[in-house]
């Protein structure tokens, strides 16, 4: 009986190891820490309630030079929320995976002018994202290239 159990365990072990090392589902490849091309910030993309969100986790200049205090969302169109800390701010919101390495239906917020744009994220390779922000028509927009911080 013990020999049978041992054999069974040995047989199943490689299967279990393969399961543990299985790659993440395609949509979850977006999860990680990314750096925009200007290098001013680092954005952690996480999954909340089945959608993808990106929050600022690091700022090259964390403090407002005018006040010396940590930067806040001072350009938010809603004045009541201008004290939300910029470090921790969710600037990518509500993305869903649309297949073909594209995450759609989301928005990107530009804290430098307080504007929100429609946005599509395209994964060019495991460590590179094209982040395209636009108003109305996707063709009329601007693309920024983000790099994964811990390369795979």
């Amino acid at each position: 009986m013990r020999t049978t159990l041992l054999l069974l365990t040995l047989l199943l072990l490689p299967f279990g190891t393969v399961l543990a090392q299985a790659p993440p589902e395609p949509a979850d490849r977006l999860i990680g820490v990314w750096e925009p091309s200007n290098g001013k910030a680092r954005v952690k993309i996480e999954k909340i309630g089945g959608k993808y969100y990106g929050k600022i986790v690091w700022l090259r200049e964390p403090n407002d030079p005018a006040t010396g205090t940590p930067k806040t969302d001072k350009n938010n169109p809603d004045e009541s929320q201008r004290t939300v800390p910029l470090r921790g701010y969710r600037l990518l919101k509500d993305f869903t995976y649309g297949g073909n390495d594209e995450w759609t239906e989301g928005t990107i917020y530009d804290p430098e002018n307080g504007s929100t744009y429609s946005c599509v994220i395209t994964m060019k390779d495991a460590n590179t994202l094209d982040i395209r922000g636009f108003i109305g028509v996707k063709a009329l927009g601007r693309t920024d290239v983000w790099k994964r911080l811990q390369t795979k």
Partner: peptide, 17 residues
């Protein structure tokens, strides 16, 4: 604090800082 649900996107609801 933010809320989200259904077809509605995440909304900023409140802050203290």
């Amino acid at each position: 604090v933010q809320w989200m649900g259904g077809q509605q996107g995440m909304q900023q609801m409140a802050v203290r800082n």
